[in-house]
Design a protein around this nucleic acid. Sequence first.
DNA 1: TGCTTTTATTTGACTGAGTCAACTAAATTG
DNA 2: CAATTTAGTTGACTCAGTCAAATAAAAGCA
Lengths: 305, 305
Amino acid sequence: MTDIALIESAREFNRFYTNFLGLLNKAYLDTSFTLTDARVLFEIGAHNGVNAGALARDLQLDPAYLSRILKRFREEELIEATLDPADQRSQILTVTAKGRAQFEELGSRSNAQIAARFDTLADGEPQAAVAAMQTIRAILDPQAKPASAIIRPHRAGDIGWIVQSQGRFYAEEYGWDLRFEGLVAEVAGKFLANFDPEMEHCWIAERSGINLGSVLITNGGDGIAKLRLLYVDKAARGLGLGKQLVDECITFSRRKGYKQISLWTNDFLHTARAIYQKAGFRLVSEERHRMFGPEANGQTWVLDL
Amino acid sequence: MTDIALIESAREFNRFYTNFLGLLNKAYLDTSFTLTDARVLFEIGAHNGVNAGALARDLQLDPAYLSRILKRFREEELIEATLDPADQRSQILTVTAKGRAQFEELGSRSNAQIAARFDTLADGEPQAAVAAMQTIRAILDPQAKPASAIIRPHRAGDIGWIVQSQGRFYAEEYGWDLRFEGLVAEVAGKFLANFDPEMEHCWIAERSGINLGSVLITNGGDGIAKLRLLYVDKAARGLGLGKQLVDECITFSRRKGYKQISLWTNDFLHTARAIYQKAGFRLVSEERHRMFGPEANGQTWVLDL
DNA sequence: TGCTTTTATTTGACTGAGTCAACTAAATTG
DNA sequence: CAATTTAGTTGACTCAGTCAAATAAAAGCA
């Protein structure tokens, strides 16, 4: 039986979010569309070829009411309806070009509305709010597929994110002191200050605007690429992002004509070491150190290309 | 400008939660109350003695409509309305015993509804969902935000935050390229790598777990303290945080026996310059530069202690 | 195979949540 | 003290959404 305090907390949030959504949804008054109109058009746009009965069930709408909305949309040439060859009672709904333009216009207005709200927030707050939304969605709707992660080049703020997330991670998980964060900042800072876009690169793994991982290739000279700052956030482990980031490094390094990739890691980073081993890296040296507080076992691995 | 992926993620959550709330709110059909009736009764119950005009504003309801709801509630003896002695136009609303019983009955049904939903979840998931809801509420509800920030020493991750937020800010507001973020990373990295806790300090302004500002004092040698990386997030401007951070620097520097504080800024940072001038700093040199892309006017200011 | 039942969608009729304007009484303003 | 504004009420209305009955197509059963 769920704790009453949790339940009341959830209800309080629901009252707040009902008002919040109510304010957002009032914006539909700036168009001729009602909120329900917009939901219908979005849903058809998102699942082109949906059937009307399924639509009514997904959106919890009265079929009679939906029928009138769809009729109006057909008259306004926003959608097309064709009979399902497999069942001539059913209708298959698709968005027309005009409907898609309208759908995108509504989308732009909605984006602008959220953007206006998020732009008033402090740096980091939109990400924190969206991460929390994703958490709620994953719990209350387990069948929803999370957006997939992408891997992209770095942009403004990403180096800071690398410093912050790795500094925090190593402090919390391994008790490393702030010298490690300082080193990461210097390494990453030098990377930006002396960046050679031809021979160096930084990859960021991201999902829905939230950074999840990173890795750098820097030019060590003598045909040696240095793989640095590989990291995957705890929330995104198990998705194969680490391997994908390492694969990007290898592909890039081969293409750029490097002879070898070298990297330094610590033996307690088991998942990372497994990735390196599977990718063909070999251990070339090992040394105990106390660079950041607790004693650790640093290792240098290399991959001949 | 907020990242479009964050915005789209938020909109997707809003569509999901609109449906989720729609399902919860359908349950009011098991009573004679509409959702709006329930919101009104809850609000009166929660703020006994509220006035009708304030109620209409808080709940964003048409006064005419609210009037009819309140009349019906008076007829059903759920609430009492008395004229405000201070303003006989205004009505003070209180819940009767019968109303409180109804309010509690609605509360029980609502609790049961959420409980039924939460009981289907795995252990720990309700806590995670509610924690996420509290995060969203804390970010999006201005009334939930404490007015004041605290100022504290740095800890793991803060230097990364400084690099990220200032790197992004200067790129977005002034078009500075990533060399600036690189420089911030190097400066801040060196600060951590060579940190002298006796003569150096970093202050972070924070509110509810979100960083809002920063400043460093580093030891420049020869009795000179260097004030670096003063920054206040745009969401927290106007609260006096910048001045507070500078005051901390001056107090600390005097206590540590420095003879002078020196700092470098750019002339377009008007608010920061105003703070320095009011604190007694004087402009000692000025130079045009293109260190980070667009031409800018760097300035060195000092304060004799 | 033919009849009955169910399902998908549409149309007619309707309810009631919520809006807008005009009203009255009380307070404020000049 | 008169004019204006504000708090709340009432009349008239709109339209989002519901319910029931209709038609056509499909499924089920004897």
